[in-house]
Design a binder for these strands. Sequence first.
DNA 1: TAGATTGTTAATCGATTAACAATC
DNA 2: TAGATTGTTAATCGATTAACAATC
Lengths: 216, 216
Amino acid sequence: MGNKALDKKTLSDALARRLPAYYRHVCIMLAEGKQTVTSGELAKRIGNTSAQVRQDFFTCGGVENYHPDTLKEWLSGLLGIKKEHHMVVIGAGNLGRAIISFKDFNSDGFFIDAVFDNNLMFDGMQICGIPILNVSSLEDYLEANKVDIVVITTPASVAEEILEKAIKGGVKGIWNFAPVDLRSSDKIEVQNVHLSDSLLTLSFRINEKEFWKNEI
Amino acid sequence: MGNKALDKKTLSDALARRLPAYYRHVCIMLAEGKQTVTSGELAKRIGNTSAQVRQDFFTCGGVENYHPDTLKEWLSGLLGIKKEHHMVVIGAGNLGRAIISFKDFNSDGFFIDAVFDNNLMFDGMQICGIPILNVSSLEDYLEANKVDIVVITTPASVAEEILEKAIKGGVKGIWNFAPVDLRSSDKIEVQNVHLSDSLLTLSFRINEKEFWKNEI
DNA sequence: TAGATTGTTAATCGATTAACAATC
DNA sequence: TAGATTGTTAATCGATTAACAATC
């Protein structure tokens, strides 16, 4: 219908990364009791132009109106929120625990059902009421339970192996914190987080700034 | 000298995000004992084209040769690695602990010197040998100690306030995990991580894929 | 030497911005 | 109604890719 962007199968990464921010800010404005949202206001909060907001919404098929509830519903639909995503976390280390104890996304329909670790010491223990199972039982677990997303917080060396098992088990997505670049495929979607990379990017920006300070 | 890109003060975000990945993969190849690196090999590992690798390196001023040691040194220089970055973490919760216990970046000259929390319960305690101080003493601490990077793992509500204090204290960069979009300025560089956003982006990709599966 | 790889310029492609008639 | 805001197309801008002579 005159919207070429919609004919493409995948939206650009830049846009896919902005969508959650739109959602987040619409939720905030809703909580603030705002009656209306405008592309201008949203743009200001998110740190870009109103033209971009409108173009993004257009690219995603358009929204009926800019009431915060309508926007929130519409963005929820795009993002697949409230579809009940069942997740398991691999690795009961500090990062695994941090993710489990995150309350941020539980309200959006993301549930963590189990944690897996290779350390037998953890057997029978729980984290925040979630059972820790041995990683050797992962394949059986995936066979027996519907798992949508696997969160990898293991060392790099075993990440690829977990990915394979997740694919076999019919998992739809991987949220990967191990410092390896796992690839998305038609079988599974991957989101690589790479925490240390983002620290290095910060360091780069600091360094870059100091370089130019000295130049002038 | 014929390299226009270098005249620009800041390199593009896309490139700034690829640099740590180049560094990571060069380190891996070095550990594997590779004698040579080529733009093609690096591209394959990182998941892009050799033309992009060469263009990126050119944009960054160029590297003498492609020996893994030379490349590692050169990338280290760009990224500001080994300059000794002193860091403090705000928030002694699960995420704070996870970051402190991360061993990944200590080897790259990033040191965490202290943790701050507003919970008096923690007073006098330590995490991995790092003292937990009360957040009320943050300003004094920043005055008395050289701190390059402040890591924010607090709730959103106090993040802005911490940013202000960090700027006053002469901090160069913020590594922000609170779900607010803090802005970089000429005073301070900010890297917003937004863990939940990346989960939502993953959810979006999964959702998008299923949408097209149903269409066909 | 021949083959492969780099450095650099030019061409292409895609994403952001601008513009403005239509709508609120 | 007038002013502001949207939806959509077109223009611009920047990033990626292609090309290829120079070098390894």
